[in-house]
Design a protein around this nucleic acid. Structure first.
Length: 469
DNA sequence: TCGACTTACACATTTGAAAGGT
DNA sequence: AACCTTTCAAATGTGTAAGTCG
């Protein structure tokens, strides 16, 4: 349980000591079924992406607490590139194959219940079952577009907002779970993953050994028998190094929409740091290097990277909100900025707290509220000025067969500013080994993968260029 | 030649409308 | 009439295998 990253995207002003009362929050998010995720993670999770869109398995399911019951929140998920590399599956392990492809259009999945009161979010686990991944950059269904053979992890964003439009101005809080990182693939590479999926995903039941399609598996098993000798981990072990704690950590961030992180050249510090780590046992998790390192040793490289999240943000603010400003974050690692990360490492759950936390000021409670639950699909498009943003507006509608389901695409304040350009990471001659590489690489693969592989990812990955439900 | 990707397929679960019961 | 439960066909979600593409 060492994967707790608590990160403030702004910090308290250096001059002020007491926490800003407005920034108090105790929002917690925990990942449901962490052991299943861990089981996949240990092998190296792969998520199939198809032209028509494919669900994730395991599904993203989280629990929330600490919300204001009567306040409304919007919950979104986007996929964040893990690093700036493209991978290939070679000889039973992942290797860096080169520089990452230019980013596809960024999309954000909006939970269909959004906006909903905090009580709604807290009363049950929140499932993102319908979230689909595609490799089709021209996708019209609103699915999240990813590149095959690239690594990503889901990022959960929650923000207090009465309606979807005001989300644009909201302070939001994000969580990520290290064990949910995955490699997007168009066809499974690691047969262990295939087997795990079949064992656990009901929809793949037809491929199980006991099923009527036994022959398929026998046939495939013969190709790589070793893959099938290992017993299903989730059923007979309880993932020792995962303990029985609650889901593991997250990056917890609070910030206004980053407009850019200019000046960062994505130095790719990964290789340097990786030398510190011992070679990992290939039989164990290919992600082990990453996990162990994610115990947050807070290397200077990481700290530097994190600093980039703390750029001062000036965001247009509607009258109902306080004119928040980020305090300028010092470029060099500051004790205050890193201490919070360290202090929360190893906790079994993660939560926003103290100066790390920002909450949106309470909305005017006298103001009439939108219906408690359910999207207000038409409101966005009807809003005056919405069309102004066509340059960055990515809109599609749900399939006609489901008239009740409408896709929305929220204006991304910064999307248009972000070129769909190249990664600004290290040059191709110096691809640093990714954190999850097996033995051949793990001597250098110390760097954990979260957000630090290439900070350009942030500047190119606006949160709200797209959303749907 | 080969790796990445697409597509059709069989088999499973899920969904939701219709039918029936209370 | 309203609500609940059951049934069942259609829709949808799976990984595989064979093929295409570059």
């Amino acid at each position: 349980p060492t994967h707790l990253y608590l990160k403030a995207n702004y910090s308290s002003p250096p001059s002020s000591s007491g926490p800003d009362p407005y920034l108090q929050s105790n929002i917690r998010m925990t990942l449901e079924d962490p052991e299943l995720w861990k089981t996949f993670h240990d092998i190296g999770t792969e998520m199939i992406i198809t032209k028509l869109g494919r669900r994730m398995f395991p599904h993203c399911k989280v629990n929330l607490s600490g919300l204001i019951p009567c306040a409304k929140y919007v919950l979104l998920v986007d996929m964040i590139p893990e690093d700036g590399f493209r991978y290939k599956w070679n000889k039973e392990k992942w290797e860096v194959a080169g520089k990452a492809e230019p980013q596809p259009p960024c999309r954000t999945y909006l939970h269909p219940d959004s906006p909903a009161p905090g009580s709604h979010w807290m009363k049950q686990s929140i499932s993102f079952l319908k979230l689909k991944l595609t490799n089709n950059t021209l996708d019209q269904h609103g699915h999240i577009i990813l590149h095959s053979m690239h690594r990503y992890h889901p990022r959960f964003n929650i923000m207090q907002a009465d309606d979807l439009f005001s989300v644009r101005w909201s302070v939001f809080q994000t969580f990520t779970f290290p064990e949910t990182s995955f490699t997007a693939v168009t066809a499974y590479q690691n047969t262990k993953i295939t087997k795990l999926k079949i064992d656990h995903n009901p929809f793949a039941k037809g491929f199980r050994d006991e099923g009527t399609n036994k022959k398929r598996w026998v046939l495939r098993a013969n190709k790589s028998p070793a893959c099938f000798q290992k017993k299903n981990k989730t059923s007979d072990t309880s993932n020792k190094d995962f303990e029985e704690d609650q889901p593991q950590g997250a990056v917890c961030q609070f910030y206004y929409y980053p407009s850019s992180f200019e000046g960062f050249d994505g130095e790719g510090d990964m290789p340097k740091k990786k030398e510190e780590d011992a070679v990992k046992n290939e039989q164990s998790s290919p992600w082990r290097a990453e996990r162990e390192n994610s115990a947050r040793t807070d290397s200077p490289a990481e700290a530097e990277t994190r600093d980039l999240y703390n750029t001062e943000q000036l965001v247009p603010t509607p009258a109902s909100y306080q004119p928040y400003r980020f305090h300028e974050y010092i470029k060099s690692p500051s004790p205050s900025s890193t201490s919070s990360n360290n202090s929360v490492s190893g906790r079994s759950t993660f939560e926003s707290r103290g100066p790390d936390v920002a909450t949106v000021p309470d909305h005017d409670s006298s103001k009439p509220r939108a219906p408690e639950i359910g999207p207000t699909p038409c409101s966005i498009q009807a809003l005056p000025g919405y069309q102004e943003y066509t340059g960055v507006l990515n809109m599609s509608m749900a399939p006609a067969s489901k008239p009740g389901v409408i896709s929305h695409h929220i204006y991304s304040p910064y999307g248009a500013e972000q070129p769909l350009g190249q990664w600004s990471g290290p040059g191709s001659s110096q691809y640093p080994p990714p954190p999850h590489l097996t033995a051949d690489y793990t001597t250098q693969a110390v760097h954990h993968g979260y957000h630090h592989g290439n900070v350009a990812e942030w500047s190119q990955y606006p949160l709200f260029s797209y959303s749907c439900w």
